[in-house]
Write a protein that binds this DNA or RNA. Structure first.
Lengths: 118, 118
DNA sequence: TCCAATACTTACCAAGTAGTAAGTATTGAA
DNA sequence: TTCAATACTTACTACTTGGTAAGTATTGGA
């Protein structure tokens, strides 16, 4: 199965936000789509080195169900599918910014500690 | 084993932050400690209905290793152990606030949609 | 008729995450 | 000597997450 029981009863706001953002590549997809506005499946794949097609499509489907991502199909040959953020996706990305800044500082701190050791 | 390979090479800040905050109860522990300042193991357990002792201690240990939580042991009978946030834990909690606010709005939206259906 | 290009889809497997339930450690007081 | 209270610790299990690799679907053009 691809989908699991989500949208459950949440204990608090963090809980509700984590539910849609948990997944190895989801925050990166958010970032990638926010950066480029619109991306095709293949572009996303190339933009996220290491992601498998299975996980990419699985995450995109869940994010679509969660109202974060919009999927537009163009009936051409070869087929073209474009993904973009919805308004909710954009606001989620904004809400993640302070966390990203904290993580960046943490990375720098770890790197500095590693410097001292080596 | 309790610990897994963490503190890996991170792709971005979000990634680095997610690494320390991922875990079913971690954000709740953060919130609980921020709210009360200091909590004993048993108090935390009672404050997080449904958490198992195994997961609680496992998360606390990881958060201690990650420099988010401070553990203070009082050699009394019966034993007393107090947990509190470090400065990094406090700033992480601050960085999570916008995400929590977003999640709260999402919960309200979902509840409203559910109202319409029922 | 077959091929090329893109976007999936599926089966299978390994590793990680979390729950249950029972056991351990400490030590002062009765 | 045993007990009580707190804070863990361990073994076992089930479920979830993510990876690999191969296959499918679509359809215009050569």
């Amino acid at each position: 199965m691809t989908s699991n029981p989500r949208r459950g009863p949440y204990i608090c706001g963090i809980d509700a936000a984590m539910d849609v953002v948990t997944g190895k590549w989801k925050s990166l997809i958010l970032w990638e789509l926010d950066n480029h506005g619109t991306r095709r499946f293949g572009e996303l794949k190339r933009g996220l080195p290491g992601v498998s097609e299975k996980m990419l499509i699985q995450h995109l489907r869940e994010m679509e169900q969660d109202g974060l991502v919009h999927r537009e199909v163009y009936r051409e040959v070869p087929p073209r599918v474009e993904y973009s953020l919805t308004e909710h996706g954009t606001t989620l990305n904004d809400a993640l910014r302070p966390l990203g800044a904290w993580g960046t500082k943490r990375s720098q701190r770890l790197a500095a500690e590693h410097e001292l050791v080596s």
